[in-house]
Design a binder for these strands. Sequence first.
DNA 1: AAGGATACCTGAATGC
DNA 2: TGCATTCAGGTATCCT
Length: 280
Amino acid sequence: MPEMPEVESVVALIRERIERKTIVKIDLIKTDVIKYPQAVDYVRLLENQTIKKVQRKGKYIILEMDNKILAVIHLRMTGKLLFTSKNQELDKYACVVFHLNDENKLVYADIRRLGTLEAVTKDELPRIKGLYTIGAEPLSDEFSVEYLTRILNHNKGKIKPFLLNQKYIAGLGNIYVDESLAISKIHPARVASSLTEDEIKSLYKAINKAIGEAIADGGTSFRDYRNALGEKGSHQDNLYVYNRKGKPCKFCQTAIVKTILNGRGTYYCPTCQKLEHRLR
DNA sequence: AAGGATACCTGAATGC
DNA sequence: TGCATTCAGGTATCCT
């Protein structure tokens, strides 16, 4: 479900509300979302600890506790991290409830329960492989045209699966990959290493634009996504191609097409995004 | 070794 | 209406 812009919106809202607060009690409703350590130990590690710092890396949310434990949360498809105030009702799909010393709650809720909660020391960080091997973030200094050029080099795979791979670029998912490729007018099945210098520059800008605009809109909510206060984002109204099958391309009016690429629904403009290199 | 299917889950939408 | 099928903002793991 949530990609970097959605996770960023969640983190921005919870940060100011839970940093310096203490977790006085944890209620377990559905324990299967806790992947490490076992649920009882997870609770033991985090109860009576103060939340020192809230961070985000790619799609991961990291709560750094006073005892140096890192509570790492990944929302996967339908996970939500909700700041629930004193008199507010619990989410129907609440799995884990963190009671705070100000009587408010941080609630992990997840319809499909594909999301993951882990508590690790710094030394144990490598066991969360997806976090340990994560690539550069869009909109960061590390993410540059040179970086993108370097990772694309020699990659014989298609550009869309490449962009979905978190070890190259952190935070892109199915929506923003399609958006980035649409903005830069690159076909999703193009071979990654075949992009020209100009196309790489264009893709670099497009990724930052797609992510930046989505963050500004508070994320995309065409289905389940809600921010930490249970509110929808608005970027679903500003998408170029995603979920716009049959609607006119915003650049050339051609009807947007939907196909399946490597098992993922894929939207693109068949006029703007040609597979064959333009001949002139 | 890379890269494609499959597994993990539930609910909503669609098809017959 | 009812029942079956398909699909979903993700990723680890298995297979070839």
